[in-house]
Design a protein around this nucleic acid. Structure first.
Lengths: 173, 173
DNA sequence: GTTAGTGCAAACCTTTTGCAGCTCT
DNA sequence: AGAGCTGCAAAAGGTTTGCACTAAC
């Protein structure tokens, strides 16, 4: 199991497996989503109401600098938080739909190719690699078109020019 | 000249070319570095001491959502700011040395390949793509080795185990 | 028993917002 | 003239730090 390999890696280096860390590790490992610090904190609090937000940040930082998790931004679609995932899968790119927010993963040879070229051309020793792509998913492309049409006709209908709905930043609940 | 094409694009869409924006555009275009908002603000203030930090943020946001500049994180090597570059060059990846902070750019076919595969396999309409890679540049790899050696011998020399120098976050002056 | 790790409160950095007044076109 | 833009002050969002206490090994 994935959790075991991470816990093993920590134990070897003399990192203590506290109750809090076990909770956080399990959540990161088992949850099928890309969690940010706040969401992880909320989930962790369900299991241990005393667990502090700061511990979440410290744990994530530790896991990141140990190379056990990767940090993502997901194109800052929802804000400026960072998202985390364990380094278990093969390297992959993240595609974020800028309309619905859905995140898809792309595995495939261009990524390995890129890695190899960079290592050989530059003699660069890669520790982390991150590819994030923003755009419209197949489903949203058509919806998007319709929306743009609607806006256009609204603008033409109103003499002054109707203001576009402001693209507000997603706020936390 | 690059500036012209950006200014043209803005003018077409009825965006005003204020004195402040001209200053900022010229700095982004002419400066050969990846600037973050604060640095851009400092540079802009030299030309117009009244220019406000908020205007920098608003201008960057506008340029980004117009697709005229790209936003980078450079692996958060120096902190959580964002860096900006005009979209004039061909698509490229950024390689950040996690020791010296140097940033190199990689152009090359794997990037185009990646783009095409994602578009064809998923029917995904790409608007922005970002590849950032962290590691050690050729030069720092040897230096890094030496540093690790030194640390090791220090640890062996001291009975308690000397604490490693903490990797503090880079603070602003 | 030590030392690493935790919780709490407070700070910090980066970015956004509301609003009154200024300025491009 | 008038919408669009700016500056200012204040706030927000996300993350880190200092310190005293606690718990893992």
């Amino acid at each position: 199991m994935a959790l075991d390999s991470i816990e093993g890696s920590l134990k070897e280096r003399g990192v203590r497996l506290t109750r809090q860390r076990q909770i956080l590790l399990e959540l990161i490992d088992k949850t099928g989503e890309h969690l940010d610090a706040e969401r992880l904190y909320q989930l962790a609090k369900e299991r241990d109401p005393k667990l502090n937000r700061v511990t979440v940040y410290r744990t994530l930082k530790m896991l990141k600098s140990s190379g056990l998790v990767d940090e993502l931004d997901l194109m800052h679609f929802t804000g400026d938080q960072h998202f985390y995932e364990t380094r278990l899968k093969q390297e992959h790119a993240h595609m974020v739909c800028l309309r619905c927010g859905r995140v898809e993963e792309f595995f495939g040879e261009p990524l390995q190719r890129l890695r190899k070229q960079i290592e050989s051309h530059f003699g660069f020793q890669i520790l982390v690699a991150r590819t994030e792509i923003g755009g419209y998913c197949a489903h949203c492309q058509t919806l998007r078109l319709r929306e743009v049409e609607e806006l256009r006709s609204q603008v033409e209908a109103s003499p002054v020019g109707a203001p576009l709905p402001p693209a507000k930043r997603a706020r936390r609940a």
